[in-house]
Nucleic acid binder design. Structure first.
Lengths: 107, 107
DNA sequence: TAAATATTTCCAATAATATGGAAATATGAA
DNA sequence: TTCATATTTCCATATTATTGGAAATATTTA
């Protein structure tokens, strides 16, 4: 993940509806969710949610898969972890300050 | 850290100059850096950097301390870790998917 | 094929953000 | 005090993001 990727991912998450949608997909895990349920859960119009899900996809943070007349959106855990790692990279010049209680998803 | 705090922090980091500045402060660790050196290192005009550092402060991601005619900016590691944790919270409904190789700073 | 359901695309108005030169402010030194 | 250095604030312009109703598209079922 280069700087541009990271800026795009951060910008995608820096919006309440998108942050909520992404977190819901993180909780959902590998099973994912379809936009109808997500729209209901977040109380956001379908057109608005669709716009935001596309933004998250453009940032590489989620993926889309068709399943019949439904779509399934899933969090892209590898990219999320890449983003987290980028922020702490070479923290304190690599001194012994890394906290192994940190939680990143291994999905 | 509530949702609004997180959105503000993400928005603050979703800008190349600010992301670079923040990462430089993360690497610098508790010693921090002054804006003159930072401006030179990032090759950005002082006025522009000042604007961006203020944004990072408003988001609670860095702090400012005066030391004579210099200022010292430091990364606020607790808030950085809070941000990272917010994104992975209740990942996969809490199933065994947490990767303890993740790196968060304990500074 | 036609109807029903699920989801996206289009659109234009509104709002927020990034830029950097010049002037202002704050501190330390002569 | 007066000068030199460090840093911020002011400002106007240009760019970009967000919203949701209506129409369009895709898929399944009858």
């Amino acid at each position: 993940m280069n700087e541009q990727d990271v800026v795009r991912a951060l910008a995608a998450l820096a919006q309440p509806h998108r942050l909520q949608a992404f977190r819901a997909l993180v909780v959902a895990g590998p099973a994912g969710m379809n936009p109808g349920i997500l729209a209901e859960q977040l109380a956001v119009p379908a057109a608005t949610l669709s716009f935001h899900l596309k933004e998250l996809m453009n940032a590489g943070l989620i993926t889309q898969q068709r399943a019949g007349r439904h779509l399934i959106y899933r969090a892209e855990f590898a990219r999320m972890n890449g983003l987290l790692g980028y922020l702490t990279d070479n923290c304190c010049q690599g001194e012994a300050c890394l906290d192994t209680t940190a939680t990143a998803c291994a999905c």
